[in-house]
Nucleic acid binder design. Sequence first.
RNA 1: UGGGGAUUGGUGUAACGGUAGCACGACUGACUCUGGAUCAGUUAGUGAAAGUUCGAAUCUUUCAUCCCCAGCCA
Length: 565
Amino acid sequence: MESTTKPLDFIRAMVADDLRTGRHGGRVITRFPPEPNGYLHIGHAKSICLNFGIPQEFKDQAAAGARCNLRFDDTNPTTEEQEYIDAIKRDIRWLGFDWGEHEYYASDYFEQLYEWAIQLIKAGKAYVCDLSAEEISRTRGTLTQPGMPSPHRDRSVEENLDLFARMRKGEFPDGSRVLRAKIDMNSPNLNLRDPVMYRILHEEHPRTGTAWCIYPMYDYAHGQSDSIEKITHSLCTLEFEDHRPLYDWFIEQLGIFPSRQTEFNRLNLTHTIVTKRKLRTLVEKGHVRGWDDPRMPTLSALRRRGYPPAAIRAFCEGVGLSKREQTIEIARLEFHVREELNRTADRVMAVLDPLRLVVTNFSEGQVEQMEAVNNPEDAAAGKRTVPFSKDLYIERDDFMENPPAKFFRLAPGREVRLRYGYWVTCTDVVKDAAGNVVEVRCTYDPLTRGGDNPPDGRKVKGTIHWVSAEHALDAEVRLYDTLFSKEDPNDVPEGGDWLDNLNPDSLRIVKGAKVEPSLATARAGATFQFERLGYFCVDPDSESRRLVFNRTVTLKDSWAKGQKG
RNA sequence: UGGGGAUUGGUGUAACGGUAGCACGACUGACUCUGGAUCAGUUAGUGAAAGUUCGAAUCUUUCAUCCCCAGCCA
């Protein structure tokens, strides 16, 4: 028997090993810990798929339970908002994951964290420091030089206890004092040079309101929150590797449940930026319409763009996991989107750049209902009907007066198939005063009804899409390209700015598109394949009078590709 | 310059001392009522140098390169 089990990545291998050796008593508990200060993006999706995926995958081997907690890392009220909490939950659910009742907040643990801080003060492991932020920074030393001990490093336990209690009571202004861990000012790891545990912030918190005016720092809050929740595997990205010694130090000093941190590589995409700070800049400076602008890499934008969650999940599983820097080509994401949509999206005909086509030998006023397959990949998707008449629109690109070799579409004297319609032969071209082709005139062959091959065995090279002029619906179509023209948006010349790499053509709006009448009832979010063009989905801006579509992704187009070269 | 990580085709990811494989991309061709899909095929890789070994991507040493760290952000 051939073994079909695919190799486990290093994290899953570790989990499997921990389960085998009974390290955590048969439990696998992970957590996804977003900070509610922005929207989730594709990079988070990788972490979500990992953290929620692992408990699912190891359920059978984890006799004592497997789950992923959703925990908001809400320790900085100056940047965090309820709006983001709501958006994050919506996006995780949309991606296809559920945390059940295990929704937690670091702020739920503020009291416990405070008590533990007192415990550390009593143990002589933490002290109140009156240095200013600037002074702390200056005395921290540099990469190559050790730091200088704070003049308050050896305050008595009593004084520290008193000061810390008064910090909590609100007796001191912001920035006047902090609580610091007493570790090692000489450590080559900057994180261990007496890191700040608490800072004073007279700021209202979205959840605790004004109950607190001191807030714990990430390093002091995260590991302890993991420990409180008995997280067995705390997975985070590579840049936290340097923080692991500190993560372990607090847990050890406190003698609490030993959660363990393991780091994996962050996901980067070409032509894309996945830094929350920079995404915020794009939104605030108006380079995009908002967090859900379909050009953004946020999950809400990908949803609006029409990316199916299943495609994002497959992508995240597909990119793999390691400790190397990972920059995935955008084409790989698009591959998964096409793969999913090819299976699931109904086909429909739409003309983006309409050119009038008159079938001269077709009776005026006559309408034939032609049968069309909704999805050739899925018989269950059924069939629909498309009206055919004398006056049609075809895609301007599908006609050339003087076609080059290998052009299989319509041209003077040429015959093509109108998909699900009839075979037509171009007999005439009508031009305007400027010489632009404004109409092509054709005759049709009644023996090719439905687009079928004629009995005489004649062949045709091309099949093109069309809509009936009288029946077509008007639509606005938004065509997207990458937000940045450079593979690496951060690759800028001296004195340049990453914003210089914004792609001026990332959005092209087509106003005069014509789509087949079956789309009249399409609802926001519905995804279709416009035959021969790509996948499109109905934008929330869409109204019955004025349909609006977003292009999710184009179809692969070997003709266009050949033209470029 | 200190510390922490990492180097396998264009991009990712396997191989854990024994045939360098898979996916995406690119390129051919077949087929097709979507120049889509599908099918078949081609292309291209172990950062460098020494060493250990019958045998090295894998072990050792040296070198090189890249990423992260000096927030009272996470």
